[in-house]
Design a protein around this nucleic acid. Structure first.
Lengths: 184, 184
DNA sequence: TAGGCCATGTAACCGGTTACATGATTAG
DNA sequence: CTAATCATGTAACCGGTTACATGGCCTA
């Protein structure tokens, strides 16, 4: 999934500036697809314009820098439709967390617990993003996608909360100091 | 999650050649983390060796090309442990399929159905990989990771099977030809 | 006999990120 | 007064992929 196609996808259902596209790709309904940075979006838009797949108009605003609003052209819609039709490449679910989980026995319990906490927070943050996206006007297809995402993330979160202790038990337990005798 | 760390992770629990590391990253228990190609693995291993984090020995085989078997060193184990301890970067779940789902209304029903079929096959293939990985000798942590992965993928698959028709109804329905009158 | 598997490695390329340059406005 | 938000864009860099080079053995 390259930036180019994502730009077309977003412009396909509403006009937007490069700045807005980045926000959508990080926080909005499009965050499942990419995390795009300015350094990739602006050149992609410029290239799409050169190919006449999008057009742009400058909107001068008082107080703020002028916005360059892009719109998709008919040729762009066709190009996008064609891109959609060809078989999608394999979804990728890459998790650094799982690598850490797999190596639990070589971690100190406190480090592992902290890592799990962070992971839980990340999953909750993703659910928040989805909840916010659901609030906005959405197409039925957008709503379907949102429900799908929510289901997957919720399952992941619940499994992690339910089974984290099993993993934590595998970590290196802090040696109980024999100073305990002093308490007697 | 860079290739370098993945090589260390694999070598951390058994010796391997570059060729084997690639297979593990594509099909084995490590497929959650990367899909690494030769072009990245061999240079990574060479660099790790130059840094004394791994060592290698050549094993001549009859009939087959000689294997270069890598082992992790004590310094490598320490470097890996340190890498594990720092907070993991956000997991990424990037799905081209979801982008297509979001655009269901602009697709022909047959194309959409085909895409969903492919996606289901992919998910089933991933489950097969996990099932095979479970069969092998595994550490408890490996088993935990495997269960986690299986839970997430199973949920995804079941949701998709259960709700695919809702999405398919949104696609462009093939126009019913008024030739139907002929049947009367 | 064609294609796949084993096995290692290099070079060209490319898609992306990071950091930089610029600058006004607004909220804390 | 500081930090964040709005807003666009470029240049250097980097981590990876793709394709190439090489070659024997085994299976269909």
């Amino acid at each position: 999934m390259n930036i180019r196609t994502v730009c077309l996808a977003i412009l396909n259902h509403h006009d937007a500036t490069g700045y807005e596209i980045r926000k959508l790709s990080l926080e909005g309904e499009y965050s499942y697809f990419v995390d795009a940075s300015f350094g990739s979006i602006y050149p992609a838009l410029a290239k799409l314009e050169a190919e006449h797949l999008v057009t742009s108009r400058e909107e001068v605003q008082s107080g703020k820098p002028p916005r360059k609003v892009y719109s998709i052209t008919e040729a762009g819609r066709i190009a996008f439709r064609d891109a959609l039709r060809q078989p999608p490449q394999k979804d990728q679910f890459k998790s650094e967390f799982l690598l850490i989980a797999m190596c639990a026995p070589m971690m100190r319990c406190e480090d592992l617990s902290r890592t799990i906490d962070i992971r839980i927070e990340q999953l909750q943050a993703e659910l928040d993003i989805i909840r916010n996206a659901s609030g906005e006007f959405q197409t039925p297809a957008g709503a379907w996608t949102t429900r799908y995402g929510r289901t997957c993330i919720t399952t992941s979160l619940e499994h992690l909360i339910k089974h984290r202790h099993e993993l934590e038990e595998m970590a290196i337990q802090p040696e109980i100091q024999p100073v305990a005798e002093a308490a007697e």
